[in-house]
């Protein structure tokens, strides 16, 4: 379903965000992506939804080479992918139903198809009783569920969430992850969640990919276990430390390579 082959991304300003990433994610998988701030997680997502193109390597989604996609084909491609962000991005003047319906209207879905589907996804995120509420009248967790309903309304094959629980307390975060699990099961959607939230990741163990300074440093099929993260340290601090270690290693490697070159 998703295949990254030696993908590197260097932004125009010279920042090298990803190095040589090779990854395989199967259809229907549920995957966490973790890593320190600035490690390249969001960049990875942008490569997947076609907003950015890789500097080298191939990003293949659904047999489509996303980086080589013509600009005019990007919108059609994006209908395969739903995205959810930390800051919900709901339209404040539309109620729950209208917010979800909006995503279907703008791709010309006939009303006949639209109405039942909107009701269906609102039910799935357990907001049927909040159908006519406006975002301002909803809690953060409820707003995030509206955003999720909107993201899955068009039946994307892949659902990507960048820090979906970033603004939520642990209880709400737990509910949101449970919701992703249900969507994964009921709709068969492949799910990719970028998160800092180690506690939630541990509560719902799933394949976990750790990125540090643009490299995949760990890919744990069984998910993050207690022994993978030292207890006496904040997860973020820990991530940064591993990132530093990784960087130091790289520097050493580069230096030895340079030495080799000099010796030749």
């Amino acid at each position: 379903m998703i295949r990254l082959n030696k993908v590197s991304k260097k932004y125009k300003n010279g920042t090298h965000a990803l190095y040589d990433i090779t990854l395989n994610i199967k259809e229907g998988e549920f995957v966490y992506i973790i890593g320190a701030t600035g490690s390249g997680k969001s960049t990875l997502i942008k490569l997947l939804d076609g907003e950015e193109v890789p500097t080298s390597g191939d990003v293949i989604v659904n047999k489509i080479n996303v980086g080589k996609l013509k600009k005019s084909k990007v919108p059609m491609y994006r209908r395969n992918i739903g995205v959810v962000f930390q800051d919900y991005r709901l339209l404040p003047k539309k109620n729950t139903f209208e917010n979800v319906a909006y995503a279907m209207e703008v791709i010309d879905t006939p009303t006949k198809v639209l109405r039942p589907r909107v009701r269906e996804v609102i039910k799935m995120v357990e907001l049927s009783d909040k159908s006519t509420s406006f975002p301002g009248q909803l809690s953060g967790g409820q707003q995030q569920r509206v955003a999720i309903a909107r993201a899955i309304a068009n039946k994307p094959k892949i659902l990507i969430a960048d820090e979906p629980t970033g603004n939520l307390d642990p209880k709400m975060s737990d509910d949101i992850i449970s919701l992703f699990e249900r969507i994964n099961k009921e709709e068969g959607t492949t799910i990719l969640i970028v998160t800092h939230d180690i506690q939630t990741v541990k509560n719902h163990p799933k394949r976990t990919i750790e990125i540090a300074s643009g490299h995949v440093v760990r890919d744990l099929p069984e998910g993050l276990k207690d022994e993978d993260i030292p207890k006496d340290i904040e997860p973020d601090v820990y991530f940064e430390q591993t990132a530093k270690l990784r960087l130091d290693e790289e520097k050493k490697q580069e230096e030895t390579e340079e030495l080799k070159e000099e010796n030749v």
Binding site: P75, Y77, R78, I107
Partner: peptide
Amino acid sequence: WIMKNVGAKN
């Protein structure tokens, strides 16, 4: 942003 993300045509 929403329109772009759900794949509305340019």
